[in-house]
Amino acid sequence: MKVLKGYKFRIYPDEKQIQYFIQTFGCVRFTYNQLLLARQKALQEGEYKTDVSPAKLKLDYPFLKKTDSLALANAQRNLDRAFKNYFSKRAGYPKLKTKKNSWQTYTTNNQKHTIYFVGNQLKLPKLKTLINVNLHREVLGEIKSATISAKDNQLFFVSILCLEEVTPLPKTGKSIAISYCPKHLVQIPATNYLPAFRQEKLQWQLDKAMKRLKVRAKAAKNRKVLLEKAKNYQKQKVKVQKLYMAKNEQKKNYMNQVSYRLVRDYDYIYLEKTPTFMENMNFSETDWHHFLRKLQYKVQWYGKKIIFVDAVENVRTKENSPLNV
């Protein structure tokens, strides 16, 4: 079956490319906000639709012509989706975007081979030069879109969405019952089945970096210097952010490994409907829900099945449901 599959990579743009990304972030944010204000005005007048569009905004604001038109069109699409979710009571009322947000993004589409890889470099629309990419895995399938994201305009990433053919995994005839575990994410009969997960060293580095950040913040305060202008504080802040990101990426990689192993080795996976979560542990309630989303789309891709039960202990004691690890 064909599925939409995402790949995320770190990219290393040069100065001109960084300036283009920052400019595009601003144009997309400006377009989104202008469309939102126009939609709000229309709703106040009893209308749902408005005649304001990215094409019309380009006539009033010529600087928008310098950026990717598909990125502006996707801003309009995102606003339409936001209002649809709001009226369906799936989300709150759309808010104006701000440049103070530490994460900035824009999405562009692949039209007539405008997004492609050349070795470890990426070609994007409107950019004449190639972008260096940490291509740690092969991108398969047809590229549909690319989303550029930046953390404080310092760390840049690209998320590639592909239409890819996925082959169902072989049937094993096995089943397993798993539950939430605050230490290892999942509780299964044999703990040696899980891949290694150790964040002690990374956590130690993060704690040390946080202490140093507090010291530099105090030093800046004593010198009566704003934190935004304190160079030592800002440098340390970037180090802390990188450690946080490394910790989160390590956790995501562990979730991917665990979910794939379970889907690969078992045809039926029993899960508790309402597990009891614990705070201040390796894996939180949010982590568990992220893991469930990964598990759910993988069982769909690879022809396996998830069964939610009240208690996995009841499943483990059934003779008709042998659990082999």
Rank of each mutant, 00 (worst) to 15 (best):
A91M: 10
K247M: 09
T274S: 05
V28D: 03
Y266D: 00
A150F: 11
A230K: 08
Y12F: 15
A42R: 04
K242M: 11
S53Y: 01
L161C: 05
G6S: 13
F87Y: 15
T105Q: 05
R261T: 00
T31P: 02
Y32G: 04
F30N: 01
P275Y: 05
K298S: 03
P182A: 10
D287S: 04
N85I: 10
M245W: 13
L169H: 08
L140G: 00
L96G: 01
L124T: 11
I18K: 15
F30W: 12
A246W: 10
K95M: 06
Q257W: 01
S284L: 01
L243A: 04
Y93R: 03
S149H: 09
K99A: 15
K211G: 10
Q34N: 15
L57E: 03
Y86K: 04
K211W: 07
F87R: 07
L202F: 05
D267N: 05
K298Q: 14
L213H: 03
A217E: 15
S53T: 15
L135F: 06
I115G: 01
D152T: 11
R216A: 06
Q34V: 04
K65Q: 13
G92M: 04
C27F: 05
V258L: 03
K56E: 02
D207G: 00
Y233W: 15
V258I: 09
P195H: 03
Y297E: 10
L295M: 01
K128L: 02
P170F: 12
V309M: 13
L169T: 12
T67C: 10
T286H: 11
V325K: 08
V118Y: 13
D207T: 11
V315A: 03
L185W: 05
R39T: 15
Y233E: 06
T114S: 15
T24W: 11
N253V: 07
K112F: 06
A75Q: 04
F83N: 02
Y244K: 13
P54V: 08
V158E: 07
A190K: 14
A219V: 12
V118W: 11
L227G: 07
S259M: 04
F25G: 01
K242G: 02
K128H: 13
I307W: 10
I176N: 02
N280I: 05
Y93G: 00
R293D: 02
K229M: 00
K294A: 00
M255P: 01
E228P: 00
D51E: 08
G141I: 12
D14T: 04
A219N: 12
L135I: 07
F277Q: 01
F156S: 08
L124D: 03
Q205E: 12
K41I: 11
K144F: 06
F21L: 08
R77P: 00
V3M: 13
Y48T: 03
N74Y: 06
K224M: 00
K211P: 00
R316K: 14
E164V: 13
L194D: 04
T114H: 09
K208E: 08
N256R: 12
K66E: 14
T191K: 14
D310S: 14
Q17W: 02
N232E: 14
A38T: 08
N120A: 06
V299C: 10
A177P: 09
L4F: 14
V263W: 11
L72Y: 13
N222W: 07
A209M: 05
A146D: 09
Q104P: 02
E319K: 14
K235G: 09
L127F: 13
G119L: 08
F156K: 06
I11Q: 07
W288E: 01
K65W: 07
